[in-house]
Design a protein around this nucleic acid. Structure first.
Lengths: 190, 190
DNA sequence: CGCCCGTTTGATTGTCTTCAAACAATGTGG
DNA sequence: CCACATTGTTTGAAGACAATCAAACGGGCG
């Protein structure tokens, strides 16, 4: 169901305001969804990895934009086709509801995080989630520090400092700037 | 439609977790909805004044609690009765949708406010909204400083300082601690 | 009148941002 | 292959802001 499509680095997948005719599933790569605020800042809503769905909308228009962070293979599914199938096939309907719930949950947790947690806690939580979603030993930070900062509502320097502090506390180790290992035990002890 | 009920100061109207069998309309007084966070803090979601509806829920359980701030007269409407009428009466259905949208809008604006604005801006915005909803010359601060603080995610001292600063800038004048006049022009110039 | 609660004020601290500069990694043209 | 530019990241110092701790104030009510 749907057709695969390749997006290059920083290529737009959909824009805020466009009518939401498709939903998307990451096959390979990494996607960010974001909005540009009126004051010039950028708000990165979420990152998506292989097997994640994105582009779900309640209304008929996208309220955020999406871009590929790395070259990414994306399954593009016609929304109408999906809702039609969901109307008759209970399994499809359930699946659709499930991925919508995942998304809702993510949004709610994230806004709680931003409201209640300090900069260091936000970064630690972000890495924790990354690790959970990746399950491999090493975690690739496919997104830039700026992406992370805009996601956590922090300045890029603050993100950087938080990372070095976590390394000093042996909660993470840098292999390269963009590739780390996460030591869950020490991370949660922060 | 519905029955009027009188609630005394600080009396609970519904609790988090209760099944949401009713929706409510303020006739007289002032209501707060709130949640107690796991860390002991309290989060005041919103204040409701005469003609406002509250207690709307998407699911079947209340996710927040509600209390009367001052002695309040409240119209209690059976939810089932309302949705039944909405099923046949388009006007009722539209009305229901409208008040739900007001609520959604309020929630979205509020979380934007908390994310982007400084303490002083939050307090100024709060007073601005109060004034808009009140339309009278004087504005009664029926809620305590603590209520305001918990609504704006600030400490009580910060709220107090913001208020005195606004007075110094002639954006507001105190008649008493709980009764002020708001000078919109100067308030927006902040 | 005096107490109590809510509020205001003051001094200090901690955290994040801002401004500035150094550093590292990668790419490009000669 | 090297000199140089570009981009992304880290580090340092100073400043801004709200939280915290502490104390004084004021109004309402017994």
């Amino acid at each position: 169901m749907g057709t695969e499509k390749l997006f290059s680095r920083n290529e737009k997948i959909f824009r805020k305001g466009q009518s939401a005719r498709h939903i998307y599933k990451v096959k390979l790569g990494c996607i960010r969804t974001y909005a540009n605020l009126s004051d010039g800042r950028r708000l990165v809503s979420a990152f998506y990895f292989p097997r994640n769905y994105f582009g779900l909308e309640v209304r008929d228009k996208h309220i955020i934009s999406a871009e590929a962070i790395t070259p990414s293979m994306v399954l593009v599914i016609r929304r109408q086709a999906l809702t039609l199938r969901a109307a008759t096939d209970i399994a499809v309907a359930k699946h659709l509801l499930a991925i919508t719930n995942v998304e809702l949950q993510r949004a709610q947790n994230h806004s709680l995080l931003l409201r209640n947690k300090s900069a260091h806690e936000r970064v630690a939580h972000f890495l924790f989630e990354l690790k959970k979603r990746n399950r491999r030993k090493e975690v690739d930070l496919l997104m830039s520090r700026q992406d992370i900062a805009d996601h956590l509502n922090l300045k890029i320097e603050t993100v950087s400092r938080a990372l070095t502090r976590l390394e000093k506390k042996s909660a993470i180790s840098f292999l390269t700037h963009r590739r780390i290992t996460v030591h869950i035990r020490q991370l949660l002890a922060t």
